[in-house]
Simulated scan of single mutants.
Amino acid sequence: MNWLEFFDGDHNARTKKAIHGVRTAKKVKKKSAFGIGIVGNIKAICGKSGVMVKIVYAPTADNYSHSEIRRLPRDDLSLLEALATEAFVDLVHNADIDEEEHGE
Rank of each mutant, 00 (worst) to 15 (best):
H11F: 14
D62C: 04
D75F: 10
K31Y: 13
H66Y: 08
D90W: 02
E99F: 08
Y64N: 03
K27C: 03
T60I: 04
G9L: 10
T15N: 06
M1D: 04
E68G: 00
L83Y: 07
K17H: 08
D76H: 03
A44K: 15
L91M: 11
F7W: 15
I19R: 04
F7G: 00
N41E: 13
A44R: 14
A84H: 11
I55V: 15
L4N: 03
E100D: 07
V39A: 10
S67Y: 00
I19A: 08
A18H: 01
P73Q: 02
L91A: 07
A33H: 13
T15P: 01
D8F: 07
A13V: 11
F7E: 04
N94Q: 13
F6I: 01
E5N: 14
Y57F: 14
I19L: 11
R70W: 05
H11M: 10
H66E: 09
R23W: 11
L80I: 05
R14N: 07
I36V: 14
S67V: 02
I55Q: 11
V28F: 05
I38D: 15
S32K: 08
D8Y: 09
V89G: 10
I45Q: 08
T15L: 10
I42V: 15
D96T: 14
A95T: 09
S49N: 15
A84I: 01
F6L: 05
A13I: 10
F88E: 02
N2W: 02
E104D: 13
E101C: 06
E99N: 13
I42C: 05
E68R: 11
G37P: 04
R14F: 03
K16G: 00
F88I: 09
G103R: 06
D62P: 00
E81L: 10
H11P: 00
P73R: 03
E100N: 05
I38M: 12
H93V: 09
K16I: 03
C46L: 09
L72E: 09
L72R: 06
I42H: 08
E101F: 09
H20Q: 12
R14D: 05
F6C: 03
L79R: 08
P59I: 01
A87E: 01
T24K: 15
F88S: 01
D90V: 04
